[in-house]
């Protein structure tokens, strides 16, 4: 079988001294798509932030191993440059910084860290044009300040644009589908599907199974109160849709 890309081992995470995740085990192999589902407040975002290395999220025990090495000590930017990408549930605005400028700086920071040649202006322009078209993002949005005044859907599509341009090895998407209408959802799904490859893995956090109609996961996990309550194939998502989360709470 393919080798593990991400191994989360008995992970405990606390915020401000309160433990939120109580021992998560999860292995994602190269090329796999995993979905994490769960009610609000179950710890889904916490898991994504811990993977990305948010300084407010303290790993109190357990480990996160990426490409065979623990990344607990790695800075967020080092994790990013190693190929971990997080599409945020609530993308922030950066006033006065153009989307295009920001994205080029990010791409070149990552390339530099990996010892690759930086993208020239022309190369970058060609790349972003292609990806923007894929994500149905018009040129005006590229020149505006990062996320400033963007609609909810535009912000989410902008996250996937960044994903497409940065082409990470592990893409973690935190509720990218929330608040999207069906057309936007399809656009996002098309974008994600076009990026699927045997080397690239996805962790999709979602509240609804509807996204999973468009992006077929290999595995589905249900998070409940900071623990994985159940794992299964994509049929688990349908079962959840049918029975609701309460069904799982009873079994735990």
């Amino acid at each position: 079988m393919s080798k593990p890309l991400l191994e989360i081992k008995d992970l405990h995470v606390a915020i401000d001294g309160t433990e939120i995740l109580h021992g998560i085990d999860l292995t994602i192999n190269a090329g796999e798509v995993h979905a994490i589902m769960g009610t609000n407040g179950s710890g889904k975002s916490t898991l994504t932030k811990a993977i990305a290395g948010h300084p407010d999220y303290t790993v109190t025990s357990g480990d996160i191993v990426y490409e065979g090495k623990s990344i607990l000590e790695a800075e967020p930017e080092d994790r990013a440059c190693a190929g971990i990408f997080l599409a945020f549930q609530y993308p922030v605005e950066i006033p006065g910084v153009s989307n295009m400028y920001f994205l080029r700086a990010a791409l070149n920071a990552q390339r530099k860290a990996r010892g690759e040649a930086e993208a020239s202006g022309a190369e970058f322009l060609a790349l972003i044009k292609e990806k923007a078209k894929l994500m149905d993002i018009d040129a005006g949005l590229l020149n505006r300040s990062v996320n400033e005044g963007f609609s909810g859907g535009e912000k989410k599509r902008n996250e996937i644009l960044q994903l497409a341009v940065l082409a990470p090895t592990l893409a973690v998407l935190d509720e990218t589908d929330s608040g999207l209408d069906i057309d936007a959802l399809k656009t996002v799904a098309t974008g994600v599907n076009s990026l699927r490859s045997p080397e690239r893995s996805f962790l999709l956090v979602t509240h609804y199974q509807r996204l999973l109609n468009h992006i077929q996961p290999d595995f589905v996990h249900v998070l409940l109160d900071g623990r994985i309550a159940k794992s299964g194939g994509k049929e688990l998502a349908l079962e959840l849709e049918d029975k609701g989360y309460a069904w799982l709470e009873q079994t735990v």
């Binding site: 990305a52 948010h54 300084p55 407010d56 800075e75 967020p76 930017e77 994790r79 990013a80 440059c81 990408f85 997080l86 945020f88 993308p91 922030v92 605005e93 950066i94 006033p95 006065g96 910084v97 920001f102 994205l103 700086a105 990010a106 791409l107 920071a109 990552q110 860290a113 300040s145 960044q162 940065l166």
Partner: peptide
Amino acid sequence: ISDEQVFFLRQRGLSEEDAVSMIVNGFCKD
């Protein structure tokens, strides 16, 4: 300067200093 802005930029690969510098330069753009 918001920690979430800094984290967002770091998550995209920028160092903390470059992140702050970018936010500040955006603030001063006008």
